[in-house]
Design a protein around this nucleic acid. Structure first.
Lengths: 402, 402
DNA sequence: CCTATTTTGTTCAATCAAAGAAAAAAACCA
DNA sequence: TGGTTTTTTTCTTTGATTGAACAAAATAGG
């Protein structure tokens, strides 16, 4: 149990004000007071501080939709987008996405750099990222002095406390202290996390999502990842090793997973599993190297849609494995929502029969209907916003304490 | 994000002081300061308040083991056991355990009342509990005016926010607003929860357990329950429906579970499952009614220990299902510890081969060794302390705000 | 056109809790 | 007895919120 003193109070309330603005857009001081339950005087004081520090700015009536009532007109405040610039990075096996975002967590730009990460050394990867980001910064003329943080999403197992990648399928040599390396190179805080956690965070900061309760995001791609967000914070478990949904076993036997065990969800649902099985059915040329690229996966799905029964069955089975897995999550965690996304959902139409068959019957009756289960197309934009959100959150936490 | 004001500060620090005392036993003011990081002045002030309110008391040196150093001797403070009395209840299909506890969460007494809960109506169950508790109070001459709260553990699905049993295997008519009924009858707050949650809480307040991180307790009995405690708070999920470990599926097929689905852990590991299968092997007289009692289960286990291969296999299979389930939990939540307990662990020796076979190989290598997995004999005492702890926690929360 | 009304934002003294510093208390030691 | 050490209390200061009075800026209406 932690103590509280004046500093904690101050920082809590500053955070409350910033958080209200972050979630509810430009707000007048009265509204901030209503939302945070702070007194007008307190709001005045806090916003005055934040304004003088440059974190907030006054917004001149945005062609005020407000039905200009009488009384003194409200002055809208908003987080100052120019208060800081953020870089978000998303590293996968074949590309590096670089995002630029402002303090409002709004994306300002994006560029892709292609790279084969497995061919790089520990230093090589840091070098490549540094060069790419510097190029990005130059081209977009981001004010480097304004850079306040970097957020990175990578596949694999990450120790987010120190920014170290403990293991990753996209790197040939681990552990890599990538976070530390980039912090030294750019001189700003670097927040790193698993791609699924990042995605979960990205969704949890969406305006329509509640900041309380539990949100689970499942990401189907080459493998299968999961992010658990509880009360707005990513749940990580002991040593940041939680949320290995892909390696939940739904039977003691089954296909061999790359983790060495049998029966993992990933070994039936992940792209690599689909590809592995589809190869035998379609007699695909073995030259196509793993990891399977999007085009190949799309080709396999197309074959299924054309009516190839064996392929249909493959996807159907994947769907039922996924459904069973999700039912376990719902029984276990009863989250408010489960979002299923990632590149793999492109062929969800083929998985759906199996998924539907397995999902509801296996959710306890008493738990049914209390969790919203949504399959959504994956969007690079949401993903990018997640990386920015990580960096922004850290920045706000730090600036609130000051 | 909630605001903070002087009240929050005060209540936070009062709670910090009480929490330190609760965990670390009698403490001098200096020690409280060291533990909470509060200044001596603050500790003095807060403890003075708490003393005058009667929540704390000074403890005269308990044959002070302290090597009587020089300087002003320390005055030990402790939570005043007489500040309040608590009743803990544990309701199962055939008995009601009534516990008495003090403000230190120390058990003062215990009595069992036998009852067949399924034969009672909604009102009947409340009547029976009221009568039993009143008898208990009379016999032990508990000062009823001192009664500050009641904690109840029941099997089933509980809405702990309103104290309502939504469904329970031990009741024939649900939902039952038992919490409300008892609140009206005794005029004190009634905290109700699932038995597995209660047990999880009980373990999480044990002195050697850290108050942070995630603790999972799995309870094997007639069914299989689970309690998740994160950062000292029971995790409940949406509408309190989480932690249905017993109905996690470890395969799409398998024995039929009482929930209607197939492949539930409970349907292989729960007492009723073992009994159901053992009956066919041993040709037990079908007269023995479900739920199987402890003696019958012990008899079945004894048969296995005598070398009955079919029975051994039965337990071995149960063990492997359990092991697989636990491995899923570890992969998913990476808790600090998983405690397996409950009456069913009496035959864990027979399950162990299957359990060991299934557990470690199915835990991701990177997650192995970061979770402590313990099988412990079930103890009524710990269980009882859990019920008391629920009530005490609520009482402290309320008294801290005052 | 001018004044009353309404709503928003600010200022200032009051308050509350913790922190810091100094003093008091209660032992031990020589 | 006087000095030392450790614990606890007391007193003052600090820092934050609050409440209330006040100032500002617009509309409504005669």
């Amino acid at each position: 149990m932690k103590k509280a003193d004046a500093d904690v109070m101050r920082s809590t309330n500053r955070k409350a004000v910033l958080s209200a603005l972050r979630r509810l857009g430009p707000l007048a001081r009265v509204d901030i007071g209503a939302s945070t339950l702070l007194s007008p005087a307190a709001v005045s004081g806090i916003t005055a501080d934040l304004l003088s520090e440059g974190m907030l700015r006054e917004v001149t009536a945005p062609t005020s939709a407000a039905p200009s009532s009488r009384g003194r007109p409200r002055i809208l405040l908003d987080i100052n987008p120019d208060a800081a610039a953020f870089i978000g990075l998303r590293l996968t096996s074949d590309r590096l996405d670089v995002f630029q975002g402002d303090a409002r967590t709004i994306l300002q730009g994006h560029t892709v750099f292609t790279v084969k990460t497995r061919q790089l050394s520990s230093n090589g990867i840091a070098d490549f990222i540094e060069q790419s980001v510097r190029r990005f910064i130059d081209e977009r003329s981001v004010d480097i002095r304004n850079l306040a943080g970097i957020g990175i999403a990578v596949q694999g197992i990450v120790d987010e406390t120190v920014g170290c990648i403990r293991w990753s399928p996209i790197l040939s040599c681990t552990p890599v202290d990538l976070g530390g390396a980039l912090e030294r190179r750019f001189g700003v805080p670097v927040m790193m996390d698993n791609d699924a956690n990042t995605l979960g965070l990205a969704h949890s900061v969406e305006p329509q999502r509640s900041r309380n309760g539990c949100l689970v995001s499942i990401m189907i791609g080459y493998g299968v990842g999961m992010g658990i967000v509880i009360d707005g914070r990513v749940y990580r478990g002991n040593r940041g090793s939680a949320a290995e949904f892909g390696h939940m076993k739904i039977s003691g036997s089954g296909a061999l997973c790359r983790c060495g065990a049998r029966g993992c969800i990933e070994a039936s649902v992940g792209d690599y599993a689909i590809y592995r099985d589809a190869r035998e059915i379609l007699e695909l040329s073995p030259s196509v190297t793993l990891p399977a690229d999007g085009a190949t996966m799309e080709e396999i799905a197309a074959e299924g849609r054309r009516g190839n029964a064996a392929i249909c069955n493959l996807f159907r089975h994947a769907g039922s494995v996924l459904g069973l897995g999700v039912s376990n999550i719902v029984n276990l965690l009863a989250p408010e929502a489960v979002l299923i996304t990632g590149a793999g959902t492109a062929s969800f139409d083929l998985m759906k029969p199996g998924f539907d068959e397995a999902l509801m019957p296996n959710i306890l009756p008493s738990v049914r209907d209390i969790t919203e289960i949504t399959v959504m197309d994956w969007s690079l934009e949401i993903d990018g916003r997640g990386t920015i959100a990580m960096a922004v959150q850290h920045w706000i936490d730090e600036r609130s304490a000051a």
